[in-house]
Computed example of a mutant assay.
Amino acid sequence: MPYEWSPPAVGSKVARLDLWPYRSLPRRGFAGFMALTAAMISLPLFPLLGTALLWGLLPFLALAVAGLWWALKRSYASGRVHEALTIDAEAIHLTRTDPRGEVREWDCNSYWAQVDMYPTGGPVPHYLTLRGAGREVEIGAFLSEDERKALYSELLRELSRARATR
């Protein structure tokens, strides 16, 4: 799962959750995929070696490989989103770091905080939010629908555990 609960430090009752987008193609796989793609695209060019048609097709094939490289690099850049949530008996703190490095934060008293899930009507199915301190913020919008459902029950459990230690 692209999120992980960190165990509390000894003597601490703070729960920490880190969330990040799932990437099915790791960085090492990127190099292999690009090499394989370039090799597969060049196979049809071998019969054209020594002809003028090769030079007519080559720029378009090179453009296709460059476009694929650019799209995957851009996808990696957009995947640098990170959310960190800490829950203790007194407060909840959510920090979101966007792909460009912009940091947004939200704080709320854990007693008044609510976890809400909107099965429909949100930007994604089973839209997950935290509400409190006069604001409602989304959490884990980049997760899959099943992951948001699982996270919802885990957040409810951690929030009730934090309230019980008050």
Rank of each mutant, 00 (worst) to 15 (best):
M1R: 12
W5E: 03
S6K: 15
P8M: 09
S12H: 13
K13Q: 13
K13P: 12
A15I: 10
R16Y: 10
L17I: 03
D18S: 15
D18A: 10
D18K: 12
Y22F: 13
L25Y: 07
R27D: 00
F30H: 06
A31L: 14
G32R: 13
G32Y: 15
G32C: 08
M34S: 04
A35S: 09
L36W: 11
A38I: 05
P44Y: 09
P47A: 00
L49S: 04
G50Y: 05
T51F: 03
P59G: 00
L61D: 05
L61M: 09
L61V: 05
L63K: 07
A64F: 14
A66T: 06
G67F: 12
L68D: 02
L68I: 02
W69V: 05
A71V: 08
A71Q: 08
L72H: 08
R74K: 07
A77L: 07
V81D: 01
A84H: 14
L85H: 07
L85R: 08
L85E: 02
I87M: 14
A89K: 11
E90G: 08
E90Y: 11
A91N: 11
H93F: 11
T95E: 15
D98C: 12
D107L: 10
D107A: 13
C108T: 10
C108E: 07
Y111T: 12
Y111C: 11
W112A: 08
W112E: 07
A113S: 14
D116I: 11
Y118L: 06
Y118G: 00
Y118I: 00
P123N: 10
T129W: 09
R131N: 04
I139Y: 09
I139H: 05
G140Q: 07
G140T: 02
L143H: 05
S144G: 03
E145D: 05
E147S: 01
E147M: 04
A150T: 04
L151N: 01
Y152M: 00
S153V: 04
L159A: 01
S160V: 07
R161G: 04
T165G: 07
T165M: 12
